[in-house]
């Protein structure tokens, strides 16, 4: 599976990464090489194999429905790039 520049741009947009047009070619080449490595998987038949999401066959534990968290807003917003009046600020969201 070879990737072209336009696919690289599409994927970069999905991942919200900026890729310069000059870079796109090289990135496409690198990713194509990696996909070639990955495609070795296709060499075997797995039609009857169940996927394995976690190495261990265990199930989800449940948490009691209790409020355990206090308000730490001020402390948490100290590390924010931009916050005002308790809100995180971002460039205007357009709907």
């Amino acid at each position: 599976m070879a990737l072209d520049k336009s696919e690289v741009e599409k994927i970069a947009h999905l991942a919200r990464l900026h890729i310069d047009t000059e870079e796109a070619e090289e990135v496409a080449g690198r990713i194509t090489d990696i996909l070639a490595l990955i495609d070795q998987m296709q060499s075997i038949d797995t039609a009857t194999t169940e996927p394995l999401a976690h190495p261990l066959d265990v199930v989800q534990r449940l948490r009691a429905d209790e409020v355990t968290e206090a308000n730490h807003r001020d402390e948490l917003q100290e590390i924010a790039p931009s916050a005002q009046e308790g809100l995180y600020l971002v460039p205007r969201v357009i709907e």
Binding site: D65, E66, V67, T68, E69, L76, Q77, L87
Partner: peptide, 27 residues
């Protein structure tokens, strides 16, 4: 209408001051 969030122990009460019910997981 649980007391706490789906995956964290933060309160879900309506009408609280902004971001006072958002813990480190929620953020």
């Amino acid at each position: 209408s649980t007391q706490s969030k789906l995956f964290s122990g933060s309160s879900i009460q309506f009408g609280a001051e902004p971001n006072t019910q958002a813990n480190i997981f929620d953020l």
